[in-house]
Amino acid sequence: MNQDDHDFDNALKDLPTPPAVVTELLTSIDRADADVAVLAKKVATDQALTAKTLRLANSSLYSPAAPVNTIQQAITFLGFQTTRNLIIAAAMTTCFTARRCAGFDDKLFWRHGIAVAACARVLARHLRVNQDLAFTAGLLHDIGRLVLVTLHPQRYAEVIAWRSTHDGTVLDAERAVLGVDHVLAGAALARQWHFPDAIRQALAAHHTPDSPGAGALAALIHVADAVAHALDLAGEQNEVVPPLSLDAWNALGLDQGEWLQVFRETELQFEEIATILTA
C-alpha cells in the first residue's frame, strides 16, 4: 500500500463524507462574517446532530444557568466558536459507521478520543489557551486509524494481529503491515476535509511533538494522549502508555498538585462526554 500523497488523497474519495453543515463549518472556520441564523437553521435540519450538540451544551462541561433548548440559544450562550466545535465533535462520532475489521472496536476508539479531548480541554484551561480547539484536536487526533480501517478493514485486522504478537506501538504495526501509518492517513483526511491549520498540525505531530514546527497544540495533545492511556479511561484491554516526550511534558509547566487536579477533572468530565457522544 505504499502510496504517495496524491494516491492517498484519491483513495479518500471512497470514505464517507461529513454532513454538509460540518464541511461548511470547517471551510469557513476563519471567516468573521459567519451568519449565525443561517448556521442554526442548517444544523436544525439534522435532528441527531442537534440533539447531541444540545446535550453537550447542557452538560456540566458548560453548566448553563438555564436550559439550552435550541442551536440559536447554544450559540448565544456558548459563542459561535464553541458551538461550532461541539457540532463538529458530535458529527464526527457518527460519520464513520462500524466496519468489519476483526479486533477493532469503534466505540473503544471514540472513548479514547473523547478521553484525550477531555484531558486536552482541562490542560488548555490550566494553561489559558483555546479550550475548544484543544478539545476538537484531542477528539480527532487518531482519526487516521479510522481512515485506514475504513479503506482496508481486512488488512487493518492484520495490523491488530501483528501488534498482539510483537512488542511495538500501533504506528510500528501499521508501518510493518501497511507501509503507512495513521498519522499520514489523518493528515491526508485533514487536507481533504479542510481542517483548520492548527488541528492539521496537531494531528501530524502528536506523536512527534519535539519535531521542528510541531507547535504547542501538538505537544498538548501528545501529553493528553499519554494521560488518557495512563488513566485507562477507554477501558481497552492490555492498555499501553505510548512513549512520552519529557520536553513536551515539562513545557506545560504544571506542578504535582496541578497534575493531580488535571487527572481528577479529566476523569470527571470523561464519562459524561462519552455518554453523550457515543450514544
Rank of each mutant, 00 (worst) to 15 (best):
H229L: 11
V180G: 01
Q131K: 13
D255N: 15
F8M: 08
R55I: 12
A48L: 14
T23I: 14
R111L: 07
A188C: 11
E271G: 13
S211M: 12
L146W: 00
S63L: 15
H182P: 02
N69V: 14
D232Y: 07
T17L: 12
Q192K: 12
D33M: 03
A173H: 00
A32I: 09
T169D: 02
V129F: 03
V122Q: 05
A134R: 00
N2H: 11
C95S: 06
L171W: 08
P242I: 09
A224N: 10
D7V: 15
Y62C: 04
A274W: 02
L252Q: 07
G103D: 08
L189G: 00
L12G: 04
V68Y: 03
L49Q: 01
A190V: 08
T94G: 12
A161F: 01
A226V: 10
D172P: 04
P242H: 05
G179F: 13
Q47T: 13
A161S: 04
V43Q: 06
I75K: 00
A202K: 01
T70P: 02
D106C: 03
L25H: 02
Q154N: 03
S60E: 15
R155E: 07
A44G: 09
Q72G: 10
L268M: 15
T275G: 14
A91M: 06
L217M: 14
T169F: 01
D172H: 07
D106H: 04
D7R: 13
D142W: 02
A34C: 10
H152E: 07
A40G: 09
T136W: 09
A66M: 14
A251R: 05
A66D: 14
A137C: 08
D142L: 07
L49D: 02
L252W: 06
A120V: 10
F263L: 14
V240Y: 02
P16R: 03
A226W: 04
V122S: 05
L260Q: 15
P242N: 10
A74I: 09
V180H: 00
I87N: 00
R200K: 12
G235N: 05
I29Q: 02
E271R: 13
A226G: 07
E265Y: 15
A11G: 10
A66R: 12
V68T: 09
L220R: 05
A34K: 05
L146D: 00
D46G: 11
Q73V: 11
E174I: 08
A161H: 01
L26S: 03
